[in-house]
Amino acid sequence: MSIAKGAAPLVILGLTLLPPLASAAGDPFLTVIATRMVIFALAALSLDLILGFGAMVSFGHAAYLGIGAYAVAVLGGMGVTDLGLQMLAAALAATLFALPTGAISLRTRGVYFIMITLAFGQMAYFVFVSFSALGGDDGMALKGYSTLLGLPVLASGTGLFYVSLALLTLALIGLDRITRSRFGRVLRGCRENSLRMQAVGFRPFPFQLTAYVVAAAICSVAGVLLANQALFVSPAYMSWQRSGELIVMVVLGGAGNLIGAVLGALAIVGLEEGLARFSHHWRLGFGLILVLVALYSPGGITGMIRRILPAGRPG
C-alpha cells in the first residue's frame, strides 16, 4: 500500500498536466486519448474492487459501461441532460442489474463465476442489440452533451477531461477508504480464505454482493463519460472483448492495488492508441507485451515498480 500512497497523487498530478501539454504540443487529439485513458481507468478501478480485493473475476463488467452509456442516451432523449441526474440514473440501473445477477453469480466459484458473469454480460449485450428503439445493433447518436449545473462543460474536450479526472480522483479516494475499512477488510479476508472467515463468524455473501454492486455503479459512471466522449452509444460498449480488456488492465496493473488498475488502464489505452498508429497489426504487438509482463512481472506494473524501487511491504 505504501507505493499506492506515494504513487496516486503523482499519477493524478501527471494527468492534470496532460491537456496543457497536449495543446503546447499542438496535438489536441492527445487530450482525447488522455480522456479515454481516464475513463477506462475509472472502469478498471471499479473492477479492481471485486477482482483484486474480492477475488471475483467478473467477465461481464463491460455491461455496466453500456448501462451507463445508454442511461445518457435514454435520459438525453427525454430532455434530461444534467450529468448528476444521469449518473444517478446510471448507478441505479447498474444496481438493479447487478443485484440479481451478482446474487446468482456468487452462488458459484472460480471458473464458473467467470462463465456466469460472461453469460450475464452477453445477455445485457443482446438485450440492447434487439432494442430497436435505441438503435439496435447499430447504436445511436446522442443529441448533445450532458450538462453540469446547466452549463455545457462536457462539450469541450478539456472540460470532459477534467470532469472525468475529478470523478476518477473521487473514486480512487473513496475506494482506498473502502478497501481499508471494516467492510474492505472482510472482503480481503474472504479473498484470502473464505473458510477462515466463516470460522470467525462472517458470512461472505452479503459483503461480496455489496462490493459487486458498488463496482457496477462506479463502472456505470465511466459509461456515462464514455457516451459523452463519443456522442454515440452502441452495444459494442458491452462486448465481452471489452470486459476482457478491463480484466487485462487490472491484472496488468497488479490486481488488488488501486493505483495499479489506473496505471494498467493508462498503459493499455496508451498501447492501443500508440500501436494503432504504427500498424494495423497492433494487437499482435499488444499480445506480445502482455505475455512479457505476465512472464517477467507477476505483480503487474506495480509489482515491477516495487521491485525497482525499494518500498515497504504491500498490504
Binding site: 477508504r177 475499512s181 471494516r182 467492510f183 474492505g184 477488510r185 470467525v200 463468524g201
Partner: peptide, 17 residues
C-alpha cells in the same frame, strides 16, 4: 478480524479498520 466479527457491524466503509 475475529474480534471485529462480534463487535459492531462490519458494514462500515470509511474508517480504517
Amino acid at each position: 478480524l475475529a474480534v471485529q466479527a462480534r463487535r459492531g457491524s462490519s458494514f462500515r466503509f470509511f474508517r480504517a479498520a
